[in-house]
Computed example of a mutant assay.
Amino acid sequence: MSIKIITDSTSDLPLDLAESLGVTIVPANVIFGQEQFKDRIEMSPAQFYQRLVDSPVHPTTSAPSIGQFVEAYESVAPDADGIVSVHVSAKLSATYNAAVQASEQVSLDCPIEVIDSEQATFGLGLPVIAAATSAAEGADFDTVVKVARSANERSRCIALFDTLEYLQRGGRIGKAQAMVGSILRIKPMIIVQDGEVQPLGKARTYAKGLAQIQQVARDFGPAENLCVMYSTDEDAARQLADSISDLLPEGQDPIVAPLGPGVGAHVGPGAVGIVSLTASTGE
């Protein structure tokens, strides 16, 4: 018996990594016109971005259903001493609310803690990894919950976009709306803060934008874990990861991972981001 970790696909955890950590992922839905796909299960990131570029139809997304969460909780419960379910910000998606309602509907022999990460993509993914690692080390339910909440508080997600068009179309633009209309050939930068997308700055070129988000990551200080995410430019992401790897403990490398369809529908091609799980002060 152990503590089971559940998250949703907007965590952007690659499926093989999730499997190795024992994390169950409940997929969001990606919709092109009349066609619906389960994020990463029925449509990979590579397939999604190719279709995003080629299709005249702008994709939309929808949260997993309450029923999907009920099924997930019931599937892991027989081998669980507790379930810790960590999800994308409730201000960005209905996913958290669906998970809460599912937790109230099921009748299980173990407790469920549903946590609003107030983050997205690997801003959620790194706390999930921290919680799963704690569970794998044999921590009890309360300790894993504490680890997840501590990691959420230390998770910093920033990104450089080629355009805010996709974020605006998807209705997730939040306070970054202030940058729309003033941007002519300017590369916008955002930060996920207080559960929503907020403006971080603007750069005149993509290269200058990369340099700026690298500096912001450095300003966050030493990291317990790092991830560089990308939508379509893996080479830029890997170069960026190399440039900030010294923020991690010696011998540890940043994760480099694609933004999945559930997030990609809102960021578009050319996006790159950094998530820093800042080092714990031990308090």
Rank of each mutant, 00 (worst) to 15 (best):
L126H: 09
D140P: 12
Q215F: 11
A63V: 00
Q119L: 12
E71G: 14
D79F: 04
Y230M: 11
G273S: 03
Q252E: 15
V197Y: 00
F161S: 12
E42H: 09
T60Y: 11
V57M: 12
D54K: 15
L108N: 09
P188H: 08
A211F: 12
A148T: 07
G262D: 02
H58N: 09
I255T: 04
P188F: 01
Q105G: 13
A98P: 15
A94L: 10
A223S: 13
T95C: 02
E224N: 10
G33H: 09
K4H: 14
G270A: 06
A120D: 07
S231K: 00
R40V: 13
G170C: 04
E118K: 02
Y230S: 07
E19Q: 14
V30K: 03
V100P: 13
D8Y: 14
Q36L: 11
R238T: 04
G123M: 04
A279G: 07
S55G: 10
Y49F: 15
P254T: 01
I158T: 01
P127G: 04
V275P: 07
L226T: 03
I190P: 13
A203R: 02
E137W: 08
L13A: 13
L240E: 03
L15W: 06
A136V: 00
N225M: 14
L167P: 12
V53M: 10
R149S: 02
T95D: 05
G209A: 12
R172E: 13
T95W: 15
A279H: 09
P127A: 07
A148H: 11
K38G: 08
Q193S: 15
H87N: 05
Q119I: 03
V114G: 06
G171V: 03
E118I: 13
A99V: 08
A136R: 15
I3D: 04
A120E: 03
P258W: 05
G174F: 10
V26E: 03
N152M: 10
D246G: 07
G270N: 04
V76R: 13
T24M: 10
S245M: 12
T60C: 01
P45S: 06
Q215E: 07
G273V: 11
P14D: 05
D194N: 06
G251V: 09
N225H: 11
G251M: 09
Y49E: 01
S182C: 04
A176T: 08
A207H: 12
